[in-house]
């Protein structure tokens, strides 16, 4: 037993092999643990060491197999899952339209009055429920500044949902939508649900874009659409939830292939052995997250 303990790669930087513990991980998903037979003290150590060493192994592994970076957040080692799917979202749109405020309103149910420009990308999560299924939304909020365009584009890949935001009081942000839409279409997969949000709906007096024209734009381009307010919270929840419902629906009717690397959706493996290697590696990697 003691020697088994010593064999666990304890120096993450040197752990260069493909994970050897994926089988054990699978066991744990199913609610049983392969370390059960071991004395509890030892199991504890193994769990800690394994968690950390697999981080690096899996990091290498997921890069090499070009897996999408969309599902790093499953708390696998922390007991049973409390959600069935992970959906990756991105939020895009011009600078200052309120992308971060929408995210903050959605995750914290609070309005940030004074929000500095996002640097690169910001990240948020929340667990929601669709049709009785718990779904973890993993949201990448991108910087709107042009200087970050190249950096933020690299986060589009593998998104299941894209929230495209403009500011109803600033026409220019609406006029730029076609460029954002082109990016979203080119860099995501055909099944990615794109939801158009006209933010700052509370500032109706300063409105510069009518509801009707935006609605028409959305219809012409096959987008879902609402006007929302990150300040009052109006329609914020709806936008995020409707997107998830649509993604879920795509899964149910089979139009979204979960096995496709870039689907942006990860299913919680329910039975040992059902999961494929990629799911496994992504899941285990979550031990990294804090």
């Amino acid at each position: 037993m003691v020697f088994s303990l010593a064999q666990v790669p304890i120096e993450p930087g040197r752990a260069r092999s493909v994970p050897v513990n994926s089988g054990q991980s699978r066991g744990r998903e199913g609610g049983t643990s392969t370390t059960l037979a071991w004395p509890s003290l030892h199991s504890l150590h193994i769990a800690i060491l394994r968690g950390q060493s697999s981080c690096h192994e899996l990091e290498l592994f997921s890069i090499d197999s070009r897996l999408p970076r969309l599902a790093y957040q499953i708390k696998m080692s922390a007991g049973p899952y409390n959600y069935s799917y992970i959906f990756k979202y991105i939020i895009i749109g011009d600078m200052g339209v309120g992308k971060s405020c929408l995210l903050h309103q959605f995750t914290e149910k609070k309005f940030m009055a004074d929000c500095p420009h996002t640097i690169g990308v910001e990240f948020g999560t929340r667990i929601i429920e669709v049709a009785g299924q718990k779904i973890k939304l993993q949201i990448w909020d991108t910087a709107g500044q042009e200087r970050f365009r190249a950096v933020t584009r690299s986060y589009y890949r593998g998104a299941a949902g894209a929230l495209m935001v403009y500011d109803i009081t600033r026409r220019s942000t609406y006029n730029h939508l076609s460029s954002w839409l082109t990016d979203a279409r080119n860099l995501t997969n055909p099944n990615t649900v794109i939801f158009l949000i006209g933010n700052k709906a509370d500032l109706d007096a300063q409105r510069d874009v009518t509801y009707e024209e935006a609605k028409q734009f959305a219809e012409e381009n096959g987008l879902m659409f609402v006007e929302a307010s990150a300040k009052t919270g109006e329609n914020v929840e709806e936008a995020f939830l409707e997107t998830a419902k649509k993604i879920y629906q795509n899964i149910q009717d089979g139009s979204l292939d979960l096995n496709a690397a870039e689907s942006g959706v990860q299913h919680k493996p329910t039975q040992p052995g059902r999961t494929n290697l990629s799911n496994d590696s992504q899941s285990s990697r979550d031990n990294c997250s804090c």
């Binding site: 890069i63 070009r66 970076r69 790093y72 957040q73 990240f123 948020g124 997250s289 804090c290």
Partner: peptide, 20 residues
């Protein structure tokens, strides 16, 4: 809200090559 992923997520090697 978590920043964990910002510290552990990695870019695609092909992206890095383009900018290199």
């Amino acid at each position: 809200m978590e920043v964990a992923d910002l510290l552990s997520e990695t870019c695609a090697p092909e992206d890095l090559k383009v900018f290199e």
